[in-house]
Design a protein around this nucleic acid. Structure first.
Lengths: 113, 113
DNA sequence: TAACTATATGCGCATATACTCATTCACTAG
DNA sequence: CTAGTGAATGAGTATATGCGCATATAGTTA
């Protein structure tokens, strides 16, 4: 009863989610937030990006509902709002590892013919 | 033993995979191929795209190792090479549905306070 | 009030990429 | 060989977006 062809609108939403996850810096930020809520300055340090750039990417992630924002005095704390992104990354990593392992096999005469 | 911070290279690969999935037309093609191998002309019809554009997107998907190509006479058949993409899409769809349902809730006075 | 700090944002540049049109390539049939 | 068909590709254009720089905003402290 599932997996019927998605509507154009739905397709656009899915595509947008993937687009948000398609920048290394944003993945780095998500990774940095895997351990829990952190303020912007900590994220700037952890990722090595500029403050302006980090701030923009955090905005993108927040607008996509992947992060949530909490202000506390001067600082702004960000945290992962949608844990499913970690499952996504794991799936992709698994798929990539599998492929790379297969490609590596082609160069190792181990049990090859 | 998993989920250590990914290297920059790994991060770039993951980001690239997401980028490949971030175009509605490519998602449409994957959806069209969910039922099995199809020739290019069928995909052009199913997606409503131009032949040139469909061909380019098929190339992108193939280079990303998500599709495989098989030539037979004049026609070229494409098929999904990495089924994990469907799990990815399901995860994203689930996450989006959940969010949209929550947002809809805010407008329905059903069991709200 | 002014000074200081943490974030956010406006602007411009550079690059990436999706799209169309025309052409070319690969293959088959006559 | 030539003609015809399905698919790929080169060129050009338009749009999107990542980045850095400078500045603006919000909040704190004096």
């Amino acid at each position: 009863m599932k997996n019927r062809p998605l509507s154009d609108d739905a397709l656009a939403l899915v595509a947008r989610r993937f687009a948000v996850l398609s920048e290394p810096m944003r993945l780095r930020l998500l990774q940095a937030l895997a351990g829990g809520e952190k303020p912007v300055n900590a994220l700037v340090e952890l990722t090595g990006g500029t403050q302006a750039n980090v701030s923009r990417h955090l905005q993108t992630l927040t607008e996509a509902h992947l992060l949530k924002r909490r202000k506390e005095g001067l600082q702004v704390f960000y945290a992962v709002a949608d844990p499913s992104i970690f499952q996504l990354c794991e799936l992709v990593c698994g798929s990539l590892e599998k492929r790379l392992a297969q490609q590596a096999e082609a160069f190792e005469p181990k049990s090859g013919r």
